[in-house]
Design a protein around this nucleic acid. Structure first.
Lengths: 190, 190
DNA sequence: TTATTGTTGGGACAAATGTCCTTTTTTAAG
DNA sequence: CTTAAAAAAGGACATTTGTCCCAACAATAA
């Protein structure tokens, strides 16, 4: 549920400590908006510590959460390749520390550092791999099954993430989430 | 709805005609299963001509279509980076011609050909960009709106793709699709 | 402390969607 | 041309989920 990428994390740490590259660390408080949707930025971020959410919102203000980002996850990287506007907003859930690359620096690293290139490529591939079954599962099964699945994957999810965010992640209303949670508890009690 | 990638297509064409690389062309009839889910293959395909569907199916046999692949779209490339099993099955809808790269060849191209590397990277990024709003939209809006949207994007979609596939793409049953289509027509007639 | 706002939990009803079948239409095969 | 098989359309009903509320309970600021 909260995705991480230890390998990329470790490599970024190494790059940072070597200091050859124009790599910075930025800090954010919790609930801070780091990126807006449909905007243009010149930076790629890589989370060093903390949790953020990456989400799309529509005209009616409904949010749909794409991913919860943990250590080693990047965001803002898609815009390096296509020069389009951001599709997601990113907001910190906990206080955050993140590395930031300028687009230029990120591009140069991709070109000159084969290992970095491969790690970023793999990170992209993983994002795709991860999304596919998630959405199909959410459609195909009732809400209850989805919650059971989340609980197995990430037992403490209700403590870290608000009900609203969880609902927006599954793509349902909080009302439906509560209903499902209640029915689940009743089943367990019986 | 049916995705394409002309840039990558053109570049593959060029690579193929130069003949420096171990690149082959394969042909498939319509409704042929090219890749199974949860299997391992040693090849990456790039569609040269025709349309295929890429889908996940669950234990109950329900299919959920991830993408309709047209010219210039790759599949089987994710497994080059992570050495895991396929998450999707791929089946041709129309007769198909496709380039095939061995994993080895694909990897070497990535390492030695900067332009190829960048094109593949961009293709991955586009797959992510494309998926995000699609799923959020499908959740947030009623079926009818989704169909109107598809019609705008791809007016002739009912002629090429079966109702069942369209329903599996939107993540609904054929019954619901028919109901929505009927109501739409009635609204237009009035 | 006292408002104030935000989060959570849930009742009642409406609307959307799925399930199960049957009928009609189209396509393919003999 | 006829028949079998597959795809499309839709009726009737059940179920799920959403909408619109309101109440309880924090957490926060004044």
């Amino acid at each position: 549920m909260i995705r991480t990428n230890p390998e990329l994390m470790a490599y970024a740490e190494k790059l940072f400590s070597k200091g050859d590259w124009d790599l910075h660390e930025e800090s954010f408080g919790s609930k801070e908006r780091i990126m807006e949707q449909d905007h243009r930025y010149g930076k790629v971020y890589l989370i060093r510590e903390g949790i953020a959410k990456c989400f799309i919102s529509d005209e009616n203000g409904k949010e749909f959460i794409q991913e919860f980002l943990g250590e080693g996850m990047e965001f803002g990287e898609l815009e390096v390749f296509s020069n389009k506007l951001t599709i997601c907003a990113v907001e910190s859930i906990t206080p955050l520390k993140a590395f930031s690359f300028t687009h230029g620096c990120f591009s140069q690293l991709l070109e000159n550092d084969t290992r970095f290139n491969r790690l970023v490529m793999k990170a992209l591939a993983d994002k795709i791999r991860y999304k596919a079954p998630r959405h199909s599962y959410q459609h195909a099964y009732p809400i209850e099954d989805n919650i059971i699945r989340l609980k197995k994957l990430f037992p403490e999810f209700t403590e870290v993430i608000s009900k609203k965010d969880i609902a927006n992640y599954i793509g349902i209303t909080t009302r439906s989430l509560n209903r499902a949670l209640k029915e689940l508890k009743e089943k367990v009690d019986r």
